[in-house]
Amino acid sequence: MPRWGMVIDLDKCFACQSCTAACRMENNTPIAGPDQAILGRAILWNEVLPFLEGEYPLVHATMIPRPCMHCDNPPCTAVCPVRATYKNEEGIVVVDYQRCIGCRMCTVACPYAIRYFNWFPPEWPQALKQHLNPDPEVAPRPKGVVEKCTFCIQRLHRAREKAAAEGRTFQATDYMPACVQTCTGHARYFGDLDDPNSLVSKLSHSPRAFRLLEELGTEPKVYYLKQG
């Protein structure tokens, strides 16, 4: 089974947030609305985090697009009391929305704060409901459950079914999440970290490669390449 991973080249990422919008459109994450967004409840699985340092005029800003790290040693699946969130055999950390009891210990345990909670049932104005992605894996989540980036697992299933339908073996390059496909700076690479010939595994060993909060030992599978 492939071990899916991603590499984001911060030199080519221009913080255009197209990944954020693509992720929302692909995975039906709900609109928070003005009053909820101010409270900090906007659900953006693939948020771009602005880190500002320095005094004027020597100011430096790092813009880090942050999908789920899909750690190999995830602190979130460890604390889940009912195995509602677990790492599947392909290394993707998924949430089972029918089993989650909403205790939110995983949201607190994740050092990257990538898990979001449905405070209210998902709301769209009636007209907007027509653009929802019909894939069953991304049916809008009910209130009271945690949801997170799943590396667009519905695309993986669709790619596998397509490969099977065409009668050829599924290859790692047939599948990429929505954020990788729409990255305007072509900054995101995606593939199987275990395959030594894949670009992601080569890039993950590049001298510019680093991972967020590497020292915590969660073994994140999203590598960043240093800017500049």
Partner: peptide, 13 residues
């Protein structure tokens, strides 16, 4: 990969 595929990691478009 980059000759034919738009994303240098190959696959897709």
């Amino acid at each position: 990969c980059a000759t034919c595929h738009l994303s240098p990691s190959g696959g897709g478009p």
